[in-house]
Simulated scan of single mutants.
Amino acid sequence: MADPQPELSALLRALADGDWHSGEQLAMRAGCSRAALAKRVARLKRDYALDIAATAGRGYRLAEPLDPLDAEAMRDALRARTDTVTVLDTVDSTNRWLLDAPPSADPQVCTAEMQSAGRGRRGRDWASPFGRSLYLSVSWHFAHTAAALGALPLAMGCAAADALEAAGARAVGLKWPNDLVVDGGKLGGLLIEARGEMGGSFRVVVGLGVNVYRHAGLDALDQPAVALADCVTGAPPARSALCAALADAMLAGCARFAEQGLDAFRDAFARRDVLRDRPVTVHAASAWQGIARGVDPSGALLVADATGALQAVHAGDVSVRPA
């Protein structure tokens, strides 16, 4: 569930610039006592794992400045796509929040400064520190069958990669089925969840996590990782503008996929496919090696086995690693 604490949100935004702020002035602005302010700072440090210095005579200071998400700016930027944009400070998972939201409001966008239970594919944890990355989800209704939706991660990857490159990232590749990579390091990942609806349609929530700034959690991932700040010239764009651009691209991609399926994205995916013609190890019931040969019309990875025969590998069954 979301953690609605407006007093903490206001204090965070007052401290976001990374400068020293007088405790007396912060308390006056918040309409609380100095003791109550100190408790709020302690909650920020405990609940959001933020490094906040406190020094007598100087006040409080964030160790690293934050670029808070601007809810109104995002709603304005996405007005042509959706009337429902939710921006949270904390949530267990933006995907889960949208899955529980009323479907009648779709298409919707949900983003948060921090996730307490972020997940990747196959149930892996996703490092989600406060304000260092982007965590966003969009919802859409598809008339497709469940099998046809198997190619949706590839389409969403193409949409997200285009938006990241437009924001200044260099040469974003796609690692089947759901990773965005730069120079061999993971920049972001997708998680797609669907629920069947009456009439045979599917309500789909597409979640995207993008590392914007480096943080300690990147070192704990099971593969090399990069942040957008490592992949652009100068500073990354404002997180609100980047989040809105990604959400816009994903919603546009959902509409295009609904009309044309994977055909609309196959050439784009082929250009970004970092596994194509490379040796890979397929980890299924038993591990075997082959050469990746692109994807089939359903989005399955085609791998040439030792005999040269093409085997279709489905995302739900295996994990794939470059050999």
Rank of each mutant, 00 (worst) to 15 (best):
V226S: 15
L187N: 03
G173V: 05
A235L: 07
G196F: 01
F257M: 06
A238R: 12
C243I: 00
V181G: 06
A167F: 11
D222L: 14
A235D: 15
V205F: 01
Y213N: 15
L152F: 15
V206R: 04
M250E: 03
C158P: 05
D248Y: 01
A255W: 01
L218S: 03
E193D: 13
W176Q: 05
A249V: 00
E193R: 09
L246R: 00
T233V: 10
C254E: 09
S240E: 02
A244C: 09
A255N: 06
A216V: 09
A216N: 08
C254K: 04
D219C: 11
G207I: 10
V206E: 02
L242M: 11
R239W: 07
A151D: 03
M198C: 14
M156E: 08
G184W: 11
N178Q: 11
A255V: 14
G184D: 09
A159T: 13
E197F: 07
L154H: 11
V226M: 07
A148V: 10
D183N: 13
N178Y: 03
L246F: 01
D219A: 15
E165W: 12
G184R: 07
L191A: 07
F202W: 15
M250R: 00
I192W: 07
L187M: 06
G196M: 11
A258K: 13
R214P: 07
V212Q: 05
A155I: 09
G184K: 07
A161K: 08
A166L: 12
A225I: 00
L221A: 14
